[in-house]
Nucleic acid binder design. Sequence first.
DNA 1: ATATAACATTGACCAAAATCAATTTTCAAT
DNA 2: ATTGAAAATTGATTTTGGTCAATGTTATAT
Lengths: 240, 240
Amino acid sequence: MPDIHNSLVSVSIFKNCDESTINNLARDAAVHQHPKGKVLFIHGEEAKHFYFIKTGWVKLFRETLDGSQAVVDILPKGHIFGETSIFEDCIYPYSAEVVQDSEIITIPLRNLKTEIETNNKLALNMLGSMARYRRRQDREIEHRTIQNASQRIGCFLLRLTDQHAQGEITLHLPYDKTLLASRLGMQPETFSRALSKLRDKTGIEIQGSTIKMDSIHQLTDYSCAVCSSEFPCKDLEAAE
Amino acid sequence: MPDIHNSLVSVSIFKNCDESTINNLARDAAVHQHPKGKVLFIHGEEAKHFYFIKTGWVKLFRETLDGSQAVVDILPKGHIFGETSIFEDCIYPYSAEVVQDSEIITIPLRNLKTEIETNNKLALNMLGSMARYRRRQDREIEHRTIQNASQRIGCFLLRLTDQHAQGEITLHLPYDKTLLASRLGMQPETFSRALSKLRDKTGIEIQGSTIKMDSIHQLTDYSCAVCSSEFPCKDLEAAE
DNA sequence: ATATAACATTGACCAAAATCAATTTTCAAT
DNA sequence: ATTGAAAATTGATTTTGGTCAATGTTATAT
């Protein structure tokens, strides 16, 4: 219980909320261990809970009857998901699958709904979070429109690093390449070739899932020219 | 003034709000006539106002230094835009251009911000609106991932019609084909060819910007198979 | 240490859409 | 009615990414 409480206070939409708010949510919450591959819910299902990722990764996606899949997002620990269902007639707008063994906190949507209807601070926090997400999706659409596969990978890598870092940078892909490919809206084969092309164009070094570069500018020169935001990405300065 | 008031009461985020709320917004608002081509603001600029489209059409977009453009949305009369800036440090997240001679109401963001900080009903309405928009962007990303150009046009046409209509349907493209192409994330040439292909595949009739079909199923069979939502699109039932 | 399965890469080929260029059509202004 | 500009179409070609198949690599469970 104090465990759940501590997890929730770190969530941006609960920032500066009263203890009682968090307690009302934590009261009926539960922690579960989920193995990789576990599907938590399917889009279109009735939404009973929202979720907090304590550890691990979760993929949000939608798929068609013939099996084509579109990845909406891949979330790391510290994020919540499913909470927007309270504004969608309590229907999940996407499916959620655990992509690494994860500890997930399950919280009844009912509690959130009750709370938000009287708690303006919470509503405003949530509006801020939604606005950030909206901007994020707009960027995604923009990038898929005007960036090619290699530039999109370059941009993803950039957003993974501290953009004010000086000198040599080493970074690690957060999850496997097949998943990353789907996150970027391309096939694994295309990802593989596009990453090689990015290496050739920018001089970054690739060793499995480790990427090294002498300077961040190797990537910015290549990827940020085809983006409507100037480097460094200012949305990363603010937290989520 | 009563004119502005009447316009605002029809906006979904003001539904069921007190008269005083609307009055506080309308008080400092103004109506302007804008010619086609007029740019109202550029992304990154400081946001002072949000806007209501009384008549006409407005394109929301972002562009890179080299002139590539990504269309975020194209809004008809009755919609507001720019209002989310209050959650983005008062910076416009996109640019806005009038694409048909339009009557636009300009409202200070300050008024909205003051109001929303104390008016939970307004905040909840806005959350609902943001959730719908979010779902809409997710669908956009999905469609660009798994639908080809012709299917995307078919889906756009479907969403333009009453999806419960029986029998013969006639519809008109809401704006010119070049703009529609950019809205769907493709080049005008691709649009032209893809529309011809759609005609060949489905048997719809095309005459300039008028489209005729014997039954809506000519389109659904072709486009809805590659979508994660079942037909009819349930998000259209709810208003915005 | 080895077997196995999942992940990743590579090659050959194909399909879709972008690009460039040339017309043709449409529509508004005179 | 005529002209001119913008929009739309069409053709030829290139680029990009997808698909299918084979092979290589890595990590994990036994």
